[in-house]
Lab assay of single mutants.
Amino acid sequence: MAEQVALSRTQVCGILREELFQGDAFHQSDTHIFIIMGASGDLAKKKIYPTIWWLFRDGLLPENTFIVGYARSRLTVADIRKQSEPFFKATPEEKLKLEDFFARNSYVAGQYDDAASYQRLNSHMNALHLGSQANRLFYLALPPTVYEAVTKNIHESCMSQIGWNRIIVEKPFGRDLQSSDRLSNHISSLFREDQIYRIDHYLGKEMVQNLMVLRFANRIFGPIWNRDNIACVILTFKEPFGTEGRGGYFDEFGIIRDVMQNHLLQMLCLVAMEKPASTNSDDVRDEKVKVLKCISEVQANNVVLGQYVGNPDGEGEATKGYLDDPTVPRGSTTATFAAVVLYVENERWDGVPFILRCGKALNERKAEVRLQFHDVAGDIFHQQCKRNELVIRVQPNEAVYTKMMTKKPGMFFNPEESELDLTYGNRYKNVKLPDAYERLILDVFCGSQMHFVRSDELREAWRIFTPLLHQIELEKPKPIPYIYGSRGPTEADELMKRVGFQYEGTYKWVNP
């Protein structure tokens, strides 16, 4: 592979701008107003304001973009700056750019259920340069409990009458099928589907988006991507930290609602779906819905739930269990780990287990898709061969690698495990991989909904998990304890083995 010439960040961002501006969906010269509902909250200060700053800094926003914060707290732009700027990672050389960014910011205080507050917000936006005809993007960085009041008031008082209007809704989209349907029906009564952007930030990850290209742009994968060759698929999300004093919020939802029903299920769809007619948003989402419709409700015998306990040999936070978090209700049975087996009941995947695993306070930070292939028929190497695996590593250190057998150097035919490896950090030294939120917010500006969740996708996802969630809430089974920093409950490994996964433990990928 030829040595790549190092590029400056300015040059890299210039390439990104060229890609972005050559499309006809990006209205570079139009006025846009980006409204952050819930501007005083954690999500706004840690993710949304920093993301908008990065896009502005790199010249990736339309030229005439204004940012308006809205929340109940009586704040000023200076207050917003004070709480969000520490997350910007701005350099001293960017000081003038930073001043320009905050000059485009404003803030309006108001209630979430008060019509007069929204009329005041609308008047404020109209007073901005060309504000009355601007395109408006409303980001709901809010708890779902206020979605209905907020969307109703936005629709009645704050819509642009000339430009387009788009609304970005953060997960969780309800707690179960019934609450999700209620919320979807409410929002759909106010906005068209092409105006609604239900954001799952995992769909903005580079390697998640790469799944489609790997599958449908490489001839070698087509013939082997089926039940005849693939023994099982494992989708993993692991965090090495616990709730760390923020367990009160987590306890309301648990690990299945927080990660599995959305992030992991979306990745499953991209692995299992048929080739779409095109890369058009609805063509892709149509195929994802077909996959979900082929999955039956989760069966309790295919589920393992766990909850982390303190590690007596650990240090600091590792010595504390979930129930030691003062914000967690006493005696909570909320799971911090889950392993679930699903089956896609169609011709391509009949009988292939899709194993979804996620948890907190585990032994490493990792998100990946792992396809394990069947054993080689007619073994001539005296059971020395391990199964081939194709691994798409989402985070950290984005990579695609194939675990395969090669001859060990020497005189004899002794096979050993090795890999074919594409590590993004080595291959793409001159490429700026956008943060997931950067990519998705740019998608909203461009009107691309491919990486957002459609209402029928959402409904099918909740259909699969709601009976299990209701059973857990009714019966309150005690989750299996696992030690902070471990791989999780051993019962999860036993479940995976029972459905056909072979864990060798003899080879570990190392970032080159």
Rank of each mutant, 00 (worst) to 15 (best):
L130W: 11
Q133K: 07
Q178V: 13
K171N: 00
D194C: 08
L211P: 02
V146L: 15
C158V: 07
R215K: 10
H27A: 10
I220A: 14
P172G: 01
M212Y: 09
P144K: 02
W225R: 00
L121V: 08
R17N: 15
L190C: 12
E63W: 10
I230D: 00
H124M: 10
I224N: 08
L130Y: 11
L121K: 04
Y70V: 11
L190Q: 13
I162T: 10
F26A: 11
K95G: 13
A39C: 07
A39N: 07
R120S: 11
L130K: 10
P144D: 01
D228Q: 13
Y118N: 05
I154M: 13
A6M: 15
N122E: 09
A90H: 06
S132A: 15
G110K: 02
M159W: 11
A71C: 08
R182F: 13
F221C: 04
I15L: 12
A109C: 15
R17T: 15
F34G: 05
L183R: 01
A71T: 05
Q178K: 12
S106H: 11
K205N: 04
G110A: 07
S132N: 12
T151K: 04
A141I: 00
R257E: 03
E170T: 00
P143N: 13
S132D: 15
I220L: 13
G23T: 12
R17S: 15
K82A: 14
T91Y: 12
T65K: 02
F26Q: 15
A71Q: 04
T91C: 14
L55E: 06
L137H: 03
V208R: 00
A134S: 12
L203G: 01
D100P: 04
D113N: 06
Y107A: 07
K46H: 04
A134K: 13
G23L: 08
V77Q: 08
D200I: 02
K82S: 12
D200E: 02
R81W: 08
R74F: 14
R257H: 05
F250G: 00
E170F: 00
L130E: 10
E19T: 15
I33G: 03
S160I: 15
I167D: 00
I48E: 00
K205R: 02
S73I: 03
G248I: 03
R136A: 08
L75P: 10
L190S: 09
S106R: 14
D100C: 12
G131L: 13
S29R: 12
A6V: 14
H124T: 15
E93V: 12
D228V: 09
C158M: 11
G204D: 04
D114H: 06
Y107V: 07
L43P: 01
E156P: 07
R72V: 02
E93M: 14
R104Y: 08
T76N: 14
T91L: 09
M159P: 11
L203T: 05
N210F: 03
N185Y: 10
D113F: 14
V77E: 13
D200Y: 02
K238H: 01
A71Y: 10
S188W: 02
I36C: 06
V108S: 15
N210S: 12
I220T: 10
A217W: 05
H27M: 04
S157P: 04
E18C: 09
S189V: 06
T51Q: 02
E94K: 05
F34I: 06
T76D: 15
D200W: 01
I35T: 10
L203D: 02
F237P: 03
G59V: 03
A71R: 01
Y147S: 00
H32N: 14
T51E: 12
A231L: 11
I196F: 05
N153T: 12
F88H: 04
F138W: 12
I162S: 10
G110P: 02
L137F: 12
L203K: 03
T51K: 07
M125C: 11
Y147H: 01
Q11D: 15
G131T: 09
Q22G: 05
I168W: 03
V108H: 10
G254W: 10
D100W: 06
E193A: 03
F250C: 05
N105I: 11
A103E: 11
P240V: 10
Q209P: 09
H201M: 00
S184W: 06
Q22R: 12
D194K: 13
I48S: 02
N153P: 04
R192P: 11
P172F: 00
S132T: 14
P50A: 12
Y147C: 04
Q178W: 14
E93Q: 15
N218R: 01
F87R: 05
W54V: 12
S73N: 09
F21W: 07
M159E: 12
Q133D: 14
T31Q: 04
A116V: 13
A39R: 00
N153Q: 06
K45A: 05
D200F: 03
N229G: 04
K152A: 12
N153S: 12
P86E: 11
M207P: 05
R257Y: 00
F237M: 07
A231W: 04
G131M: 10
R17H: 15
S160C: 13
I162K: 07
I256T: 08
F253N: 08
R182M: 15
L203N: 06
Y197S: 00
P143S: 12
Q83R: 12
K95P: 03
G59D: 09
T236A: 10
A141T: 10
F191L: 12
G131R: 09
A25Q: 15
I224C: 14
L137C: 12
Q133H: 10
K45V: 05
R9C: 12
Y139M: 06
T151V: 11
S160K: 09
Q161V: 15
A149E: 08
G174R: 01
Q161M: 13
I199V: 04
T91R: 13
S188A: 14
R198D: 04
Q28L: 13
P143D: 02
M207N: 13
Q209L: 02
F101Y: 05
G163W: 06
P92I: 15
F26C: 02
S132M: 14
I35E: 02
K171E: 01
V12P: 14
I15K: 14
L98M: 15
S179T: 15
A141E: 00
A116R: 11
L98P: 02
P223E: 05
I234H: 12
I162M: 11
A44G: 05
N229P: 03
F34K: 11
H186A: 13
N210G: 06
N185T: 11
F253H: 08
H124F: 11
R257I: 03
I15Y: 11
G14W: 15
E18Y: 08
Y197T: 03
W225Y: 09
K47C: 03
G174Y: 02
Y249V: 00
G242S: 04
A25V: 14
G247Q: 07
S180G: 07
L137G: 10
I196P: 00
I67T: 09
Y112W: 09
P172S: 04
R81Q: 15
T243Q: 06
D114G: 10
L235D: 00
A44R: 01
N135H: 11
T243C: 15
L7R: 14
L121Y: 01
L98K: 04
V208N: 07
E156Y: 08
L214G: 05
T236K: 03
A44W: 00
I162F: 13
A231S: 12
A44I: 04
H124W: 09
I255H: 03
L121I: 09
G174H: 05
S157Q: 12
E170S: 03
W164Q: 06
Q133L: 06
F66D: 08
N122Q: 14
F216E: 00
Y202T: 01
I167S: 01
K46P: 02
Y249D: 00
Q119Y: 13
R81I: 14
D228S: 06
S84W: 06
E63F: 11
I15A: 08
K238Q: 04
K89E: 15
Q161W: 12
I36A: 06
I33H: 09
G174F: 05
T31R: 13
L190T: 11
S188C: 10
R120A: 14
E252R: 07
L203R: 01
N105M: 12
P86Q: 05
V108N: 11
T151R: 03
L190R: 12
G23F: 08
Q119W: 11
L235A: 11
N226F: 06
E193L: 01
L128N: 09
F253P: 01
I230F: 06
A103G: 09
I256C: 06
L43K: 03
F26D: 12
D100Q: 14
P172E: 00
R72G: 03
R136T: 09
E156I: 12
I224M: 08
L140F: 12
E85H: 08
L177H: 04
W164V: 13
L183P: 01
A71I: 01
E170P: 01
L96P: 14
K47D: 00
M125G: 07
V150F: 03
W164P: 13
N105H: 10
